[in-house]
Design a protein around this nucleic acid. Structure first.
Lengths: 249, 249
DNA sequence: CGGCTGCTTGAACTTGTTCAACAGCGGTGG
DNA sequence: CCACCGCTGTTGAACAAGTTCAAGCAGCCG
């Protein structure tokens, strides 16, 4: 059986077969689904489970009192949400489903127990949150310094790259279910300006985008425009191994 | 002896006296200082220690290939940098000293050993990184949605609040060593526009700022302008206790 | 067919940028 | 002691990037 979470965590720490099995089990206990454009959890709610996105796209967002809304990150298959369970009485942001989403709910206490006995998993989860923070820093750079065109290009580069690591990109193509409104809320610009910026990128042959499929004819060209340096995604292999005793998964 | 790190970590988990002592010791082993406006570590460097800011202000920043620069966060006394030690071969961003900075260098392996034996500390460090991520999300919101005036106001609210929790704010005042250029690099605007925005805030009596001292006559008024909701800072008390056996520190 | 959502376009407008000049201040070296 | 330099803050005016408002179009689904 496909073990998405193990696949992810192995990027951060070497897991024993036992670790892999434990992770596989916990992530298969309770599978749920949401329809597109529904909230999965809302600011102010108390989270009870850690969730693993199994299929579909979701996004984190925060709203200002006057209704302005900022998407602060996208959650793709293999991503965890609500590690905040361990931190918050209340969510300080919301998570919404962009497409229909399938996710696994992993009860807090089970995760906790697993962490207690499996240092590699505990460590991998921690590193995962460090990577999430690194991505958030790069978004800060985009919004603070990049122009409209650079922001959109950068977002496309990031998403493509992230989908690629979970085998959801094909050659030079990936899904792109975001509407222009979504793109605007993620890049801090209006939908109108997103529209004109997309046209510009299309006109220059940097992207092809229709029917919710994004094609990037020349990845390096787009990366150059975006000033995209993938190092912040830390898509590398584990650096750390516990005392080597158990076999690898 | 003053134990800044223990003070910080206690916000996230209940520490035993043994935990407190361990943390105190590790954070006193190697104290270093930097002059103002020097880099503490640079993008591309390999970090070897986790650093704890003991005195002074530092900041994380990222540069784009063409020289644009974005400050992505400020590091105040009590803040940790380079938890990335556990993650990165190379830093994906730089850290610079804003003022003269005193910091403690804590060797990676000591931290690791401490975490292995002291689950409360391990947990507190993890939660600390979750809070860092939460702050970064709020910066994303600022840069994406807030206007110039709201951004500056928000930054001031955040910094004041954070200084307050480490006893570095007094009544309605705190230090503010940031130049207008720094403020610009943090808020994604030019120094010229920062200048005009500060004047506006001053004119309205929302802030007083001179000699690097910021005074906020009416905190709620400024928070209203900034749409500042402090919940993202998670300045609360520990939710989690290990099996209660050891005495509290 | 009607209504909805998302995409596109135009034109006026606003926010923030750029460029340039100057003032104040503190430190340094002759 | 004074002249000078570099850094920070301030101001003005022209400009550019992105927003707002408004209208129309295409595709989809019931």
């Amino acid at each position: 059986m496909y073990n998405l979470l193990a696949l992810k965590l192995q990027r951060f720490a070497a897991l024993s077969q036992g670790d892999v099995d434990a992770v596989g089990q916990i992530s298969r206990q309770s599978i749920r689904t949401t329809r597109a454009r529904r909230d999965i959890i809302r600011e102010g709610d108390t989270p009870h489970h850690v969730k693993l996105i199994v299929d579909g796209w979701a996004f984190r967002y925060k709203m200002l009192p006057d209704g302005r809304r900022q998407i602060v990150s996208f959650l793709l298959p293999g991503d965890l949400c609500d590690l905040n369970v361990f931190l918050l009485d209340e969510m300080d942001h919301s998570i919404g489903a962009l497409t229909p989403v399938t996710y696994a709910e992993m009860p807090r206490d089970l995760i906790e127990r697993m962490c207690d006995h499996r240092p590699a998993i505990s460590r991998a989860l921690w590193l995962e949150s460090l990577v999430v923070a690194a991505i958030q820093r790069e978004w800060t750079v985009s919004l603070g310094q990049r122009t409209a065109r650079e922001r959109i290009a950068h977002l496309f580069c990031e998403i493509f790259e992230r989908l690629d690591t979970v085998d959801l990109a094909e050659d030079d193509r990936c899904e792109m279910p975001l509407t222009q409104i979504d793109l605007g809320e993620a890049t801090g610009m209006t939908a109108v300006h997103v529209n004109r910026t997309l046209q510009e990128l299309r006109r220059e042959g940097l992207i092809v985008l229709n029917n919710r499929i994004l094609t990037i004819p020349d990845r390096h060209a787009l990366q150059r425009v975006a000033m995209f340096n993938p190092s912040y995604l830390h898509h590398h292999n584990p650096k750390w191994e516990p005392t080597p005793s158990a076999a690898m998964g």
